Amino acid sequence: MKYEEMEVEDNMSTVIQFVLLGFSDLLNLQGLLFGVFSIIYIIIFIGNSLIIIITTLDAALHKPMYFFLATFSSLEICYVSVTLPRILVNLWTQDRTISVLDCVAQMCFFLILGATECFLLVVMAYDCCVAICDPLHYPLIMTPKVCLQLAVGSWVSGIAVQIGQVRQIFPMHFCHSNEINHFFCDIPPILKLACGDTFARELSVYAVALFVAIPFMLILASYSKIISTVLRLPTARGQAKTFSTCSFHLLVVVLFFGSAAIAYSRPKSSHSAGTDCSLCSTP
């Protein structure tokens, strides 16, 4: 693979394009992997699109819970579309190069959508909490205007948190290698390519990770109140029925924050291709 570089003013060479190495060591399985990922992408796209269409057309589903579900489905389509189509192109064409500008754009959208999903999960936990713990006041609290404000606030918060993160990474020079040992442009594998001391950048990654822990704590607080309320219900059947309304959300929370904690809380030296690649498909 050709290593492309350019000279900068301080006589340091810097990369002008990267090479994504994901699955490059599985040459005999490229066709199979292309088929598997194509099916996964189609299922995600069609499944989430159906949720959006059904919740939009069915007047009985015009409720806060289904509004947030449709918003989450829209976000999920965008989230996987940032990475999966590029993976499919790489598998089909075997051309794994990506320009620095495209890499910046992919990382920016991936991080913004990930942070937005994080905040939206908090909103959905709050919605469940109000619905279960204070059902009489639920229509007064979760009005259409409030729901829209919470959804927009999730997007604004995600953009604000991650734009600064991307600006921390891409002023750096990448002069040792242009091979990203990952499926897409993400912070940990790119930091491994940077010249000089990256301690300050790694510290900023940890700072953002700690900030994202705040929404997780809010979700835990919401579920603590939900569990406390559910356990006070008189029958086991009523407890199971009430808690089942939040079970899918709880599963998504565990998968999302668990994979994010593993991916972004480890020091740069402990990242490996196998571990990073196993996390990329978890939203």
Results as ranks from 00 to 15, higher is better:
Q239R: 15
C103E: 05
V208Q: 09
P144M: 09
T143D: 09
F23I: 04
K241I: 01
A60G: 14
A194S: 14
C185N: 04
N28M: 08
H249E: 10
T56S: 12
F183C: 05
E9L: 09
F23D: 11
A221D: 03
F256P: 01
S177Q: 01
M65D: 09
P234Y: 01
V252Y: 09
A60N: 14
A260K: 12
S74P: 02
F184D: 03
P135G: 11
A209S: 15
Y3H: 14
I16P: 05
I43S: 07
L32I: 13
L193R: 07
N178F: 02
I112R: 01
Q17M: 07
L191D: 03
A260N: 11
L150E: 04
R96N: 12
A151W: 07
V152A: 14
P64E: 11
A263H: 12
C147I: 06
G158T: 02
I262P: 00
H182Y: 10
Q168N: 10
V15F: 00
V130K: 07
K145G: 08
A263W: 07
V208D: 10
M12D: 08
V152D: 04
Q168F: 10
D58Y: 04
I42H: 02
L150R: 07
V212L: 14
L91R: 05
I16H: 10
R86T: 13
F110L: 11
A59K: 15
Y41S: 09
D58L: 11
I141T: 13
T116W: 05
S281Q: 08
H62G: 06
L101Y: 04
I214G: 00
P188I: 07
V146E: 08
I227A: 13
S265T: 14
L33W: 12
E117P: 00
S24Y: 01
S154N: 02
A105D: 04
G114K: 06
A213H: 04
Y126E: 03
Y66N: 13
L69F: 09
I262N: 01
Y138P: 00
T55Y: 05
L121W: 01
F37E: 07
V156M: 13
E76L: 13
T275R: 11
Y264S: 03
L84S: 03
V212A: 05
C280I: 10
G164W: 02
M12E: 10
L75R: 04
V82M: 06
G31P: 03
N181T: 08
G196Y: 03
D10S: 15
K192W: 05
G22Q: 11
L233C: 04
S272T: 15
L84H: 03
Y79P: 00
N11A: 10
I40L: 14
T242D: 03
N178Q: 05
I169P: 00
T229G: 06
C108A: 10
L75H: 02
Q106E: 15
S204A: 14
D95P: 02
Y264R: 11
F109D: 07
I44W: 09
V230C: 07
A207P: 00
F119C: 07
I169F: 01
Y126H: 05
G153D: 09
S24W: 02
I46P: 00
R266D: 11
S99W: 02
L75A: 06
Y66G: 01
F199I: 09
I132E: 11
F248L: 15
